[in-house]
Amino acid sequence: MLHIVACIKQVPDTKIIKMNPKTNTMDRASAPAILNPYDEHAVEEAVRIRERYGGTVSVLTMGPPPAVKAIKKCIAIGADEGYMISDRKFAGADTLATSYALTKALEKISQIKPVDLVICGKMTIDGDTGQVGPGIARRLDIPPLTSVKKVEEVNKQDGYVIVHRKIEDGHEVIQSSLPCLLSVEKEINEVPYASFPNMLKATRYDPHIWSVDDLEDVDIKQLGLKGSPTIVAKVWAPPKPEGGKVLEGNPAEKVEQLISVLLERKELFEGRGRA
């Protein structure tokens, strides 16, 4: 039976978060913490693969204790088990240190039940890098398959998957040996509303929570801020551009002025504008 692990993260909703204009940092209290939207698709895809082939879906996250809520959301989507690593020693991790910590947790999960497939969302909305997934794959020494928009086949018996990987002007059909790691695009699936039994299960569910000491062979120097080669040196609001000319008058007059601007470039509209 397949064992699929989806790696997820709880993030502040960056769509509505407010910035503190003095410090240029996020005012975390101004936005709710949500399950990273891309990760919903990762969990949903894991659930769909389980529905097709049977098996178990686990989710894994690294975060502070309130991130349990994000795991519960995954249980509501249909995951079977949730694992969380939570420790101050993980704090301040960049993508390299994050992939290290998650890999250590995945190794422990593998001892409980060998992992066939790891699925990540394309990226997180607070980090916007998409680097953690491939990082985990390299550390586990399994093939990373990024930008996956369709899972065509998962064949555990013969040990391969076939997926569609999105590229700039289309897609590639790729076969990879199992185990491997997929990071998935949003378009891979639509996440339906949670079923009532799953919601109920989620409210009662308690994830497995591990600290650094619960993991094996951990090199403390590779964790958190210490293990992170990159640092944010400064944050700044870009200088505001000058701004353009605001057209005045009633709507018809505004449109008229805009038309004359457009007509200065009328070579762009050759043969356009006919009904």
Binding site: K15, M19, M26, V232, K234, V235, W236, A237, P238
Partner: peptide
């Protein structure tokens, strides 16, 4: 950074 709300300069020292 942070969902595009601000610019950040990243260093790798």
């Amino acid at each position: 950074a942070f969902g595009g709300n601000i610019m950040a300069t990243i260093l790798c020292k």
